[in-house]
Design a protein around this nucleic acid. Sequence first.
RNA 1: GGGCACGUAGCUCAGUCCGGAUUAGAGCGUCGGACUUCUAAUCCGACGGUCGUGGGUUCAAAUCCCAUCGUGCCCGCCA
Length: 613
Amino acid sequence: MFLVLRAEVEDALEGALSALDFPTDDLGIEEPPEDVESVLASSVAFRLAGEAGAPPPQVAGQIADEIDVDELTYVSAVQTEGPYLNFLPSDAYLAETLETATDEDYGELEDREESVVVEHTSANPTGPVHVGRARNPIIGDAVANLLEYAGYDVERHYYVNDAGRQMAVFTWAYETFDEDDLEDDPERDRIEYDLVRYYRTGNAFLENGPDEEVAEAEAEIESIMQGLEEGDDETYERVSEVVDQVLSGMKACLERLPAEFDEFVKETRFMRNGDTDDLVARLKDLDEAVYEEDAWQLDLEDHGIDKNLVFLRSDGTSLYATRDLAHHEWKFDNYDRAVTVLGEDHKLQARQLNTTLELLGNDTDQLEQVIFSWVNLPGGLGMSTREGTGVDLDDLLDEAIDRARQEVEDRLDDRIRDDDLDAEDIERIAHQVGIGAVRYDIVAKQPTKAITFEWDQALDFEAQSAPYVQYVHARCCGILEESAAQRAAEDASGQSPRAAGLDPETDLAGQGLDLESVDAGVLETEAERDLLETIARFPAVIEEAADDLEPHRIATFTREFADRFNAFYRECPVLSDDVDPAVRDARLALVAASKHTVANALDVLGVEAPRSM
RNA sequence: GGGCACGUAGCUCAGUCCGGAUUAGAGCGUCGGACUUCUAAUCCGACGGUCGUGGGUUCAAAUCCCAUCGUGCCCGCCA
């Protein structure tokens, strides 16, 4: 509804400005501070003061006079406050917001009939997913959800680096060493924890082993890479045995978040189908192509990139970057847009990729990157799979769930709501809260900022965390369930004509509450109106966050929303006996609207919305 | 050395792209309050900030420009 209101205000303002012969290129539309009654404002009078030869407040007055409020649907009045123009919402604005928000899909924008492939995580299949990498699936999943809500047709891809030197090393190590050669037991009973030991042992051997044996190993690794390059089936099978096993374990870990994918795209696919060879041929034809030190490279200096892009090694094998170019052209063929979530260490490669794709004649406007900074351990220590440093995501999630479970149990005695949580409920809540807290903590921050990982901070269940927002959802459900129970009781005693209760799992249409007869006009308190205005903004927040690929804005919204809801909860009883029935119904609709808003906002973030907690 | 990002209360962060509403917002922590009333994982109040620093542009700068300092990342025939 906010989007419609904004369009209406823009039209009205533009009309008024041109009627007064003022320029309309900058309408100065902004959102007013919290203590101002209006939902939209304009500071355009500041800029027009010089031209008008009058002080800004006077100009604002002129403009306000020029706008005929009677012609507007969602604006009830245009007021000036000094130089500012304030647009106040009409009853129709609030009524329609209440009505549309009681729909379960509230916040989902119209289908744009545009496909987007979101590639994220794409961690090399070398071992367990650690916390340093966890930012990628958490942000990536949220970006994909966000685009889906914004009306795009989204596919989620994990690009599997199964052709690089790392995998050749891994394959060699896996085939060469035995269980006896490995120093430690697996840290966890899952395949990637088992196999990563070979990878670590192999890398240590290559670094410190006897020269002669290392040379032999290198020869073997080289032959694996050559085999892959030539499309040799046997080599592919050998490497796949390692890749598929490790990947299956990583997949299981990511599913705990859950971060799920529509497709795991292997880079060997673009070697085996000939795309990489074709691409290399086309790259060689570019003006920027140079042959230096026996390797084919692209000199991108004229395009602002100092570092050459090597696309064919002196031994004739392709590189990750080469195959990624083929990969991206494939994306362009199959999707309207492509979004990639990358760590900041890949920034330069992303620029090279972009520039090269453009040189190859692609329209790179359809390619966007979301860059995030690294997660470090306290003391500035990094996380590495090869070296085995870092916190495993599995451990973080286990710890989060344990702490959440403890929290639920500690609070059990103090609960007022008589819904008797059983063991299964406790486990459910522990999972929803624990994992939700981890995801929220990461997705709520601007990805460009570096994060230092600290247990207590990541697992803080207090305000500004997932549980804070989840609690609002549980409160909504509590009220709706309670109302259902009350109505059922009334009906049983013949006091109420309404038989159906309200099921918080579904929307209100078709339930006992007759939305047609709900009158938003009875919502008169500031708390109610503030809440409704916040609900009204949700679709606009989705749109803006999606345009900029910034899911953290949804998290910011959930906090503002939770604040507003808690104010409403404190000041406006819904089910008390002394509440007028019309007010009660309107407030129930408001609670239902709140529930859908917060549930869907959390859904975008990939955080579950508990019915009780 | 060069490139890119980040620097806002003791701590963790919004706000910065698109400059505007006499006191720059939250949370944590500290201190003090609120559960006979739809769940207190909540709420109310107090304390706490030269928005890294210095210039500039502007009627107006946390926000734009320049410089500078600090931190992170990158500058491989690795991925």
